[in-house]
């Protein structure tokens, strides 16, 4: 009887071993290429261009911080920054409150609730579209449906699109109307609040209002926090509404920073200035996000 053959030790070349250990990298190559070409390179190059007077057709003739100085001294850019802050501080809280309010109602067992949920979500799908922006203009022009309706009640409606204060309100309203995505998240969060908490509170005699502020709101603070951060970032990037409805007018009253970036980049070809303004916007959003993250330990409740 012959002894069983001994199995040969596996010998791997260093290259083969490296390949075995880094197989995942090969799967990531398509994504890495896309990230480097379409994200990292534009991101880095825009920072470089922000320190130049880059023009599409004239090239670069000057380097320095002149664009950043202009941004904080030029009337056009400082006004746009102020209006964008105003826009964000009006629309973000209003949208969150409205979305939570509707989600709260739709959380009750009512007839046709699925239909209502769909109907309320539709503006979020359509809201950013050109067609809705055109519709908005038709609604709010001086002889539009809104003023006609107000006229039935003997109210002389304002010149919505031409009055500096009302024009911004019209743009804000379009954004608040698109509350559907935030509403869906709130709805999911509301469903996750344990029913026994409400039962205990009811036994203790807590009113519905008390239950809402003492149970519902604290339990859904993680979703409120998430919505807050995403809505802030989106508000500072708003472009479609002012571009299509008012083109930034009247008297630049609705020229938000994103629209001004577009105007610099594609109307007057001042790419350096456009990049600098985009970076200022990025830093502002980043600071606000950091503030939100820092503050969450004081008001966001993670049950687990």
């Amino acid at each position: 009887m012959s002894a069983p053959a001994k199995s040969q030790p596996v010998t791997r070349t260093p290259f083969k071993r490296w390949c075995d250990e880094n197989t995942g990298l090969f799967f990531l190559i398509p994504w890495i290429i896309g990230f480097l070409v379409f994200k990292a390179y534009p991101f880095a190059s825009s920072l470089f261009y922000s320190f130049t007077d880059m023009n599409f057709f004239k090239g670069i003739h000057q380097y320095g911080i002149m664009n950043y100085i202009s941004i904080f001294t030029d009337r056009k850019t400082t006004t746009a920054l102020m209006i964008t802050f105003k826009y964000a501080f009006i629309t973000v809280p209003l949208k969150l409150v409205f979305a939570l309010f509707i989600a709260y109602i739709l959380n009750f067992k009512i007839k046709f609730v699925n239909l209502f949920r769909t109907v309320y979500y539709i503006p979020s799908i359509l809201g950013g579209s050109v067609a809705i922006a055109v519709l908005w203009r038709a609604l709010f022009k001086d002889t539009g449906i809104i003023n006609t309706l107000l006229g039935f009640f003997g109210i002389q409606g304002p010149n919505w699109l031409a009055d500096r204060n009302w024009a911004l309100f019209v743009i804000c309203l379009l954004r608040v109307w698109q509350f559907g995505s935030a509403m869906v998240l709130f709805l999911a969060a509301l469903k996750g609040v344990p029913a026994d908490l409400y039962e205990a509170a009811t036994i203790d005699g807590a009113s519905k209002t008390k239950q809402f502020f003492s149970i519902t709101v604290p339990m859904i603070t993680p979703v409120i926090f998430y919505n807050l951060v995403t809505q802030i970032a989106q508000a500072f990037q708003e472009f479609n509404g002012p571009y299509i409805i008012t083109q930034g007018g009247p008297r630049n009253a609705t020229t938000l920073v994103a629209l001004l970036v577009y105007n610099y980049a594609f109307q007057s070809n001042e790419m350096g200035m456009a990049c600098a303004l985009a970076w200022v916007m990025f830093v502002i959003v980043m600071i606000l996000t950091i503030i939100a993250f820092t503050s969450q330990k004081h008001w966001v409740y993670y049950s687990d």
Partner: peptide
């Protein structure tokens, strides 16, 4: 110009 823009065209 206020009337012009208010017409929304």
């Amino acid at each position: 110009m206020e009337n012009y823009y208010g017409a929304g065209f």
